[in-house]
Design a protein around this nucleic acid. Structure first.
Lengths: 178, 178
DNA sequence: TTGATTGCAAAGCATTTGCATGCTA
DNA sequence: TAGCATGCAAATGCTTTGCAATCAA
């Protein structure tokens, strides 16, 4: 238990590949070409990508790698602390970088699918206070604001007649606030 | 557009059945025994229930009603503003009362599946401020704290050796805070 | 009568699992 | 070599859809 804390301190400056290899070793797993490639491509991405998204990126570089392996590796990356699962409510699971990345929350535009990342220390604090009131010990949290982004608000003024159902999440932009 | 605001004001004191019938009429839909029963049972429940949960409750009173109708009716209730979809991240969609119910957020115990409802005006305010910074116009939001509830923290002290994977969401309790 | 509604079965998705084969340690 | 990893196909679980039969207005 205590040695874990020590280990965590030592790991503070490792890069993500090291973290991955360490996790594999510690867990008695095996390093494979597939896992290396998937991690590599994941590290090259920004924003949030679904298992499906990553699968296609991987396909481009090695068409022999299957869906299953991507799913399983993404779980592995999550266990290793490199990735974080995020759900935006469309039924798919997205993954974002987690290691050495500041925690943040999301605003999701229901018009164009854009995702804005933000962080508010005050909100975090109030959440913890709230949890404490109930004797609840929080491990994670997820705060999502659904609404319409600035750009889409402007678009609406022009094309006020066009049918504007929710679009599939295609464009993904990242902005840090606060 | 403006008449909608007027209508909303007039509806302020309607009960849920009236709201439902109004919605059906306004939309050129039809009132059916199935919809009546499903609404009835929904109104009798507390907490959050999945389509599946509601389906079984409905089955007990009328075994001839199918899955499909429950799904479709739940969507209808949502459109009518009586229900609200909630996702806890286990792949299922849950529904909770929405009409004349104060907005609230959730703490979810990953140990026993208990759901605690809470509300914090301060957090809401900060969220709106944050959105404003990005020119983002929020329509909904969802804040979920995942963690371990007070009871389960105590349980752990006793049964520290027992395997304690995440349980299916079975017990659901509701507490209002603040 | 007309068109919305129902319930079944089948289809859709995203994700997981069984299993024979392949490969790392 | 032992046994973890892979990739295919099949299975799963939740939700939606097609469609003929029913039913409300």
């Amino acid at each position: 238990m205590f040695s874990e804390i020590m280990a965590a301190k030592k790991e503070e400056f490792k890069d993500e590949k090291e973290v991955f290899l360490d996790h594999i070793q510690k867990s008695g797993l095996r390093r494979t070409a597939q896992r290396d490639l998937i991690l590599d491509i994941f590290l090259r991405t920004e924003d949030h990508l679904s298992s499906e998204d990553l699968y296609w990126l991987v396909q481009k570089e090695d068409p022999s790698i299957g869906h299953t392996t991507v799913y399983r590796t993404l779980k592995l990356l999550t266990e290793a602390g490199l990735a974080r699962e995020v759900r935006f409510g469309d039924g798919k699971t997205y993954y974002e970088h987690h290691y050495d990345h500041a925690h943040h929350d999301h605003m999701i535009c229901t018009e164009c699918g854009k995702v804005i990342e933000f962080f508010s220390a005050e909100i975090e604090e109030l959440q913890d206070e709230m949890a404490e009131k109930f004797g609840f010990k929080p491990t994670h949290h997820s705060l999502r604001l659904l609404g319409i982004c600035a750009e889409c608000q402007n678009k609406e003024k022009d094309l006020s007649s066009a049918a504007s159902g929710a679009q599939p999440r295609i464009r993904v932009k990242t902005v840090f606030g606060n």
